[in-house]
Design a protein around this nucleic acid. Structure first.
Lengths: 121, 121
DNA sequence: GGCAACATTAGACTATACTTCATACTTCAT
DNA sequence: ATGAAGTATGAAGTATAGTCTAATGTTGCC
């Protein structure tokens, strides 16, 4: 179990940002019941996974609200198999859509580069 | 030449947003020198193009600052061919990078869907 | 000439995602 | 035991990207 400082170092995510994510409900640290003198939060390996997922999902344009939903599906034991698969398929589809859009714009930029190379002398 | 209302209708971008983009420096309307009684802004076809570019670039996660740079390259007559190509290549590379990341996450989600389908009964 | 529909500006307000600050407590090395 | 470093909490501040309001002026049509 890691303290927030270690967690930050292992994920390269600033402490303040981690706290912000925690407050947003993306995950929760656990208090140590044996140590009642402090109320430090302890984080498990799953939290590292979650932070990595957050990083990846953010990079591709998901909002924290969407990521929260994704995490809930990913780790929930309560959500039915059917619902899980549906939400995951939705996310997968939205990623495909984004890839399509990116390729479209890439093509346009490549064309424009050619244009510049040939005519704009 | 279009007034802002027409521009908004043709691009499906709200008037307020168009004004915001203009204030941000993504493009500029022109005053009509023959009509000195008002100071309405008139927009040309190029502005429609630019707004479409903004829409596409935003969709793939470019910030307005990046888009501004892209538009400046796209339409500037002052920037050298070499610089234009360099900036465009940078944007193209960042799109490739994003596509790579998206594919990565897509793969992870697909794997997880399989996992859920097989084991989480 | 009067009224609806459109235009402009400045400024206030919102949401998202942080980021910093202030205060106060805890742990650890010397 | 004391000071540096780490932790918690709440609240304020920042940046980006809008979105809305108010006050005021303009145009077009009956």
């Amino acid at each position: 179990m890691l303290l927030i400082n270690q967690l930050s170092k292992q994920t390269s995510i600033p402490i303040h940002t981690i706290r912000f994510y925690e407050k947003t409900g993306l995950f929760q640290g656990k208090k140590n019941p044996e140590k009642k003198s402090n109320n430090y939060n302890y984080y498990d390996e799953e939290t590292i996974e979650k932070l990595e997922l957050i990083g990846a999902a953010k990079m591709i344009g998901f909002t924290l609200a969407e990521i929260k939903e994704l995490i809930e599906v990913w780790y929930s034991k309560q959500i039915s198999k059917k619902d899980k698969i549906e939400i995951l398929n939705q996310k997968a589809a939205s990623i495909d859509e984004k890839i399509k859009q990116l390729k479209q714009v890439k093509k346009q930029i490549d064309l424009f580069i050619k244009e510049v190379e040939e005519f704009d002398c």
